[in-house]
Design a protein around this nucleic acid. Sequence first.
DNA 1: GCAAAACTGTTATGAAATAACATAACTAAA
DNA 2: TTTAGTTATGTTATTTCATAACAGTTTTGC
Lengths: 161, 161
Amino acid sequence: MGVDCHHTESAHPGLEGVALADAVAAAVNKCERTRERLTPPRRRVLELLLEADGPMKAYDLIAAYGHDGEPAKPPTVYRALDFLERLGFAHRIESLNAYVPCRMEGTSHRAAFLICECCGAAQEFEPDFAPQFAAAESAGYAVRTVTLEARGLCPACKVEA
Amino acid sequence: MGVDCHHTESAHPGLEGVALADAVAAAVNKCERTRERLTPPRRRVLELLLEADGPMKAYDLIAAYGHDGEPAKPPTVYRALDFLERLGFAHRIESLNAYVPCRMEGTSHRAAFLICECCGAAQEFEPDFAPQFAAAESAGYAVRTVTLEARGLCPACKVEA
DNA sequence: GCAAAACTGTTATGAAATAACATAACTAAA
DNA sequence: TTTAGTTATGTTATTTCATAACAGTTTTGC
Ligand SMILES: [Zn+2]
Ligand SMILES: [Zn+2]
Ligand SMILES: [Zn+2]
Ligand SMILES: [Zn+2]
């Protein structure tokens, strides 16, 4: 992101220890309830996303995949990301080519992000797309998914701007 | 897009002849007023976007660049696209890795698109981001740009779905 | 069990974007 | 009108991002 950014405080510091275990356990539970399979590679990629301080690039995940330092093969990670996105455990941020774990509780939602162009933080929020959605539908469009990405400066970076 | 899509009618058929010349002339005028330089490669890429029936990939533009069939070098086209985006003559659609000419009259606006997942059409519309914008600002965020991409089925493709 | 479906491992390739550096063309002051 | 500063282009090579294809394995339902 900003090459000159020294605002190291992250909006979403990575999870560790109990918090990480809890988050993974919640995903395991949700998958059991919905008869989905949180297989080892899927679980590993979810862990990596949860542990990260910010959006992770696919090849960051590939590099970090093996506990022994061995990277994954690209399809392994991309397939896991497809699964995690499909189930709502992760989101792709198009304007960054990067991925984050979902921070919203609800089962289904439309993703929206505030992205800091200085420190790279990405904050998920629950958008109200009602107006845009209604406009699209009234124009005959059948909307399936909506993504919104707002780029600018986070509070921390705005100060020192 | 949809490999099985036969809905050839485009929401934005490419410009030809006088309409194309007019659109280019309008860009020339706007650049003269603002002391920006619509140089040959920039103008050529703008033409290609205006002539196209839908979103164009960067490498489509690269392949189509030369009137004699000679492709452009990638940086030529990417630099031109940067310029066109900066001046509001074109938009990048993140979820497609593709580009369209701006269809809105106003000088400054935030881009939003309805994207058909069947036929690939991308319809620009003027969004009202007031609620999201206000929420972001009240959270301390200084928003610079917002992009919204709604994916689904256009009226034509919805019928035959 | 057995067959179908879903998932993984692996190799290779394709698609998208940029780094780096040399050259050329405008622009405006000296 | 030199001359310096800025902006834009040409070119080569490389990096980054993502998927195709296919063989083999595990799970699931019958
Ligand atoms: Zn989410
Ligand atoms: Zn920041
Ligand atoms: Zn526009
Ligand atoms: Zn369509």
